[in-house]
Structure formats: structure tokens, C-alpha cells
Design a protein around this nucleic acid. Structure first.
Lengths: 112, 112
DNA sequence: CGTGTAAGGAATTCTGACACG
DNA sequence: CGTGTAAGGAATTCTGACACG
């Protein structure tokens, strides 16, 4: 996904009623998951919550796990773990790219 | 942009107040451009308008043209023309791809 | 033509709280 | 713990219409 596309997915512009329709969750549930730090909607001037498509996907994941009886505390831990995993992966990729650049640089110099 | 990303851009989930903030247009203007067929928001059960990110981009284009004094009728014509151009381009691409496939097929047969 | 505005009604969202299990 | 609900207030959105230039 490129930069442009991310901006759509991350932009917090959807109000809670629409999120409720899209996820099948009640307003109460959506607000409660925020209280438990599982999501962090933006608040506009008037204090109205605004959600992103990303938030909606997170909420659908939460709904699945809650159906399996997983508590919000556990879900929060899982989410934090996943986040760390993503960071590590990004780190590995960065290092691999760095290694390739170094190799290419040495190769280029050798031919001159 | 892949299928998944398109769904974010095209999904009509943003209410008119947010669209107003994002585009700088007044509610009156946004509704009027709909009346002139420049945009077509979705209406939910209660008749509330819902817009997509695509609609927002269209509205920003409209705003620019209106500032240049272009009338809504002209803008509509321009939009329809662009649409036809996009269709032609898609047609050309389709034909080029078809040609390549044919060539490949003949080439493959020749070697057997 | 394009936009502002006042009008009245209906639906939305917010918070804090009590209830239940 | 997770969710429902009633409560009261504030802001949103809708339509049809009159106004102006």
C-alpha cells in the first residue's frame, strides 16, 4: 500500500453510528473498547468521535476475539505483541536493504 | 491501486459536516453540487448523505474550477469528458494486453 | 446561477450513572 | 468484566423557501 492509500485508511473521518453499522457492534461496545485503550478515535472540536477504516478493521478483530471469550485485557496484550512483531520485521527488512546497498557499493567501486 | 485500497476510497461513509471541514465548502454548496449532478452521495436509512474520499477529491476539483469562474454545467461536461477519456485508455490497454497474449501464444506454439 | 439564511423537526452523539451477572 | 438502558443537553442534518445579484 502506498502513501496515498494509507492516508485513506488512516484518516479518522467516520462517526460512531456508521462504525456501528459497519462492524455490527453497539455504540456502548465501541466506546467501551476505547475506554480499554483498544482503539483511539480522533475527537473533533465538539468532542465527537471520528474513526478510520483501520479502526473499523481493528474493531472487527476485537469482535471476533470477544466472541471467543477473550477479555479486553488479553486482546490489548495481543495487539501490542503484534505491533512489536511488525516493528521487528521492519527492522529486518531495513537491515537487508542496507546490506544489499553496501554490497552494490563495493561491487561498483571494484569495477572502476 | 489494488481492489482493497479502492474499497476505502470509494466507500461512502463520511457525513456532510466532515466533508465541509475537509473541503472548505459550505453545506449549502455541497448539497447544491449534488443537485447539479456533480456528485452522488449515498443516502442511509434516515436519508443522511454519506460521501467517499473520492467524492471529496471531486469536490476539491469543483472548488478550484468554481474559483476560476467555471459554471457547474461546464464542470459537469468536463467531468463526463474525462470519464470517456479514461474509458478509451482502458480500452487501449486491454487491446495491447490482448495483442501480447496472442503473440505469446503463437510463439509458444512455434516452439513445439 | 450560485449561495446565504431562518425555520421546524427528526435523528445523533456525549457523559455519568445505575443495573445485572 | 462487559454491556444495556434511561436522562438531559448540545450539535447535526434534512427539506423547502425566500433573498440577492
Amino acid at each position: 500500500m502506498n502513501q496515498q492509500d494509507r492516508s485513506y485508511k488512516d484518516k479518522k473521518v467516520i462517526s460512531i453510528g456508521t462504525v456501528s453499522e459497519l462492524t455490527g457492534l453497539t455504540l456502548r461496545q465501541i466506546r467501551y473498547y476505547e475506554e480499554r485503550k483498544l482503539i483511539a478515535p480522533y475527537r473533533n472540536d465538539r468532542g465527537t468521535r471520528k474513526y478510520s477504516f483501520n479502526d473499523i478493521e481493528t474493531l472487527m478483530d476485537i469482535a471476533d476475539k470477544r466472541e471467543d471469550g477473550v477479555q479486553t485485557t488479553e486482546i490489548l496484550k495481543e495487539m501490542r505483541l503484534k505491533e512489536k512483531q511488525r516493528e521487528s520485521e521492519a527492522e529486518v527488512k531495513k537491515k537487508m536493504l542496507q546490506g544489499q546497498l553496501n554490497a552494490q557499493f563495493r561491487y561498483g567501486r571494484g569495477r572502476n
